[in-house]
Design a binder for these strands. Structure first.
Lengths: 159, 159
DNA sequence: GGCATGTTGTTCAGATTTGAAAGAGTGGTA
DNA sequence: TACCACTCTTTCAAATCTGAACAACATGCC
């Protein structure tokens, strides 16, 4: 059997995947119990709050959140029921639909943020020294720049 | 309001959380289309394959997977229907129940692994240089040890 | 033994998520 | 204009996930 990853690579991957699983569960629990929001809710609020005019097209939202399209619909509807966002139809493309942050949504985010950040700090940031922080930032920002795959030049499938 | 995180810390966190969201979606899609397994299925297979006698108590499984207890029940039942595991009751504690890897489950894992590892490589490992690899390993192994479920390498973990 | 208390898993109802298919619009082209 | 291929989003049914309530057992204490 061809070895796909060497020892060090595999170890890194396992550390990452198992820890991120756990980390996510911690943050989810903390956030939920402190604010009633899910991580998903929170992330959507953050994206909207940073978007121009505090609104995003459904597709753009889905894309940034790595959502299936139907999930975006459900999520936004769910948040709309709670008054965090409203839907508006898109002037320049009548197929389109936008999620728009409400004042209440923004307030909810501002109230939730400190709790969440304490949690982030406790479970993540506080455990990292300055060098690690820089290293992680660099690595994940690079990874996040998609395309991370396309080279059709497949000399990769073995090691 | 006290500032919870400085610029560098926040940036690191955002890079991590957004990228890990995206990364997860990629791996999920790749694995699903190559093998029909979900990441969750795969992780459970890995844990079982490494466990002594290839079996785990429900609670232990739930713990390591950061599952709510009822999710463990559902997941194992689902995998049992597909023949990947079987359930056995626990000799030393009659409340208990174990998930046991089947030959078919092990075979499924062995067939899925190469595909999955190619995907891991393309989306994750290949983008990291040696120093980053070491740094991430150290950081995530430390993070994982905080009160949760220490990532198990192989072959230890008794009881 | 007989009982209180804590553990371990399951069940159930309801919430979330997914993929496939459909509805509605857009843009290009003849 | 009419048509065609494509894009954006929603709908629907089925799969998955969660928390609360429960059943079965274990343990310690009298």
């Amino acid at each position: 059997m061809v070895e796909q990853l060497n020892q060090a690579q595999l170890r890194c991957w396992r550390a990452y995947i198992e820890t991120s699983l756990w980390l996510n569960a911690q943050l989810e629990d903390d956030l939920r119990s402190a604010t009633g929001l899910s991580m998903t809710d929170y992330q959507v609020l953050v994206l909207l709050s940073e978007a121009p005019r505090q609104r995003l097209r459904m597709g753009e939202l889905a894309n940034r959140m790595a959502f299936a399209p139907s999930r975006a619909t459900y999520q936004v509807d769910s948040m709309a029921k709670r008054g965090l966002v409203v839907r508006e139809s898109c002037p320049e493309d009548r197929r389109g639909s936008q999620a728009v942050l409400t004042a209440s949504g923004l307030l909810t985010l501002r109230e939730a943020a400190p709790h969440h950040l304490v949690s982030v700090r406790r479970h993540f940031v506080d455990a990292l020294d300055e060098a690690e922080l820089a290293c992680l930032t660099r690595a994940f920002e690079r990874l996040g720049k998609r395309g991370g795959t396309p080279p059709a030049t497949s000399q990769d499938t073995q090691a």
